[in-house]
Design a protein around this nucleic acid. Sequence first.
DNA 1: AAAAAAT
Length: 506
Amino acid sequence: MADGGKPPTPEKKSWADVEEEEEAKAKAAAAAEAASSSSSNEPAVDAQAKQIEALSLSVPEEHGGSGGGGDDQGPPLLDDSDESQIQAVTSGGTVYESAAAFEDLKLTPELLKGLHDEMGFSRPSKIQAVTLPMILTPPYKDLIAQAHNGSGKTTCFVLGMLSRVDPNRKVTQAICICPTRELAQQNKSVLMRMGKFTGITCACAIPPAQKDYVPIAKMPKITDQVVIGTSGTLMKWINHKKILTNDIKILVFDEADHMLAEDGFRSDSERIMRDIQRSAGGCQVLLFSATFNERVKDFVTRVIKDGNQIFVKKEELTLEKVKQYKVQVPDERAKIAVIKDKIFEFGQKVGQVIIFVRTKQSTKDVHNALTLEDYVCSSIQGSLDQSEREKIIQEFKNGYTKVLISTDVLARGFDQAQKVNLVINYDMPIKFGTRDEPDYEVYLHRIGRAGRFGRKGAVFNLLCGETDNTVMRKIETYFQHNVPEVRNWQSEEDFERALKDAGLVE
DNA sequence: AAAAAAT
């Protein structure tokens, strides 16, 4: 049943055995030659990398397992597979074989039990099949891996951390850095579930809620094998020797493009990397994200020189199953009207909804406008107290709230057990400092909140004025993806048809 | 003119 509907693939048809090793070596040598003659300061990795076959990244078949809201709908369908391509480039002489089953990965029985019984995964998704051997095969090479939103990246690095850690040693051996507290907590909860039978423990390095505050001096030392957190708190704990970094074996950057972007967390990330480098004498570094723009890609491939790389073309990055729409509205009031009359009418019926706005103030404004008319929703942004943030996330993950208004704090990585299938761009994502230059990466991450793990979803971009239209046009061009228009923002039929086309209503 | 983290 696992292969239902899929064309039969030959045994072991992985990129690894497509090319003979000898041939690959010859190619690598040729590549090195070419690279060194074209520009002598090219990073060695490009020169020595051997280009392997492009692989098809199919929709994964894993699902939320027991952590969901209770009404488990069984494994997602494998009907139409995503034809997007990913490209793997390996470094050095190691040859990897794509893992058809988790059993091929020499995992401990405890970990396998966690994967099957607790997570409910039957076999690896494409990105997992490709990256897990790279992560788990000695010599432990660094890895830069790009894969679609919702394709199962978290499992890759969580499994990586769990299997590289010695459960018997009560010292920190793995660190994962995330851009937001919510993501750190979410990743921790995935790791705890997956590692349920291993005895491995995990600390979350994020600032405590006000009521739980303790001075750093009084904080006990961390003895957990894994620490997952945000950059500031991680640095603080490391600086105060609450985390000892000399036994770190693996360092993971989730949403790595943002963690290493100049206008992101680059300086923090570099500092932490240097710290660990110094005290642990080098450790395996994993970078995971759905997006790597050319600038960041160029930078990370220079920082992580001798690693394996997997990248996806930007034109292949929009999710087939998430239908995008644009809606012209005359003014801000009309946006609220659309949300009230259309989104609340239809949206809630089909699942949960996230409405993205640009500023913290806007979350309050939109929230107030809706609450005034007795619509129930909640809103979140980074200035709320930690306990408040946790409460709102908890209520949303429980399914208690259906509509959540958010800044980009939730744009990346946030996963709601596949129950969010509608995303509203109340404000379009704009690059900071520009008027009409889209933030393509944020756009992609936002729409990725819908349609997790190959499920259906829809996105409505509310466009008001020429600037918004310019931004939308640029996005369409960038991803080479035409976004159809909902003709009349006041028309129930138009919205209904759009949702029908997206497969969200009958 | 900002969201994110945090001092």
